[in-house]
Amino acid sequence: MATERTTRIAGLALLLALSAVFLLPFVWMLSTSFKHESRIFPPPGRPPQWLPTTDVRDAEGRIMVWYRGEAAAELGVDEAGRHELLLADGRVVTALDEEVEIKQRIGLHWQNYVRAFEMMNFFQNLRNTLFICYMTVLGTVISSSLAAYSFARIPWKGREVVFVVVLATMMMPYQVTLIPLFSVYSALGWVGTFKPLIVPYFFGVPFYIFLLRQFFKGIPEDLSAAARIDGCSEFGIYARIILPLAKPAIATTALFQFLFQWGDFLNPLIYLQDSRQYTLAVALQQFQSQHESAWGPLMAMSTVITLPIIVLFFLTQRTFIQGITMSGLKG
């Protein structure tokens, strides 16, 4: 059993090391969201600062700096970039920019969050996003599971060929179908509404059809056969046996679709014609202008947008990873 324990510990150590690497992007985003704009990017040649810091100010609100190892308060900066400093002993000196280092202490620069919420109509955007997410998840789950059932559990003639067509629709790059597709929605009068973003999801999404098909195929054929003998209809088998058994796969589908829609920016931008309809992902663009990105608020809003997803994943992951419970079945 000693080897068993060694491998367990080795496995755990490996996991810990790897997860540190995988945590990087998130920790970076979180830490950056609390940094002052001037501290976001590491000074050239130096590693980034992981712990956010803030300026230190004296009782009169003046910025505290280091000057030749001494603490000083900054009185101002002149035209040529020279700093006027008040030393602790009351002397006033003029210092070059490179001689002055702004004193820092670990602290959170909350203002990024305040600014981020000021820069967008958060609750309006959130409501739009939730609506689109909810509707597309609903549509995806219903329509894709139906189609997947057909391809996985009903042995109809030609289904292999049709299934390849389903897959093939994912192989066409969107760049060249975007314009004709827009004309279709435009002809239907749907441009400027949420319909182009929602309705297609009620007609089966190839990615999820494929995913669900793989899982549906794993459910023993005996179950359907038994149900058929009991006079259960095909729809009855789908709704009463397959769907409940494939709950984890359905949950995965719902989660993936929710995540995709939550982050999608291209489609909402293209089809929506009023900034009051914009989703969170589209509104996030407002943090970037021609030459300037408001990195602090951008990171803050990215954190605000990402956190609920993480919590959602954390709380629900048991559901979609538990697998199809067949422990009671003996082969």
Binding site: F22, P25, M29, F41, L259, G263, A281, I309
Partner: peptide, 13 residues
């Protein structure tokens, strides 16, 4: 996590 952090945020890292 890396799959859900917005790419504009992670690209800087």
């Amino acid at each position: 996590l890396p799959s859900i952090v917005p790419i504009v945020a992670s690209s800087v890292l």
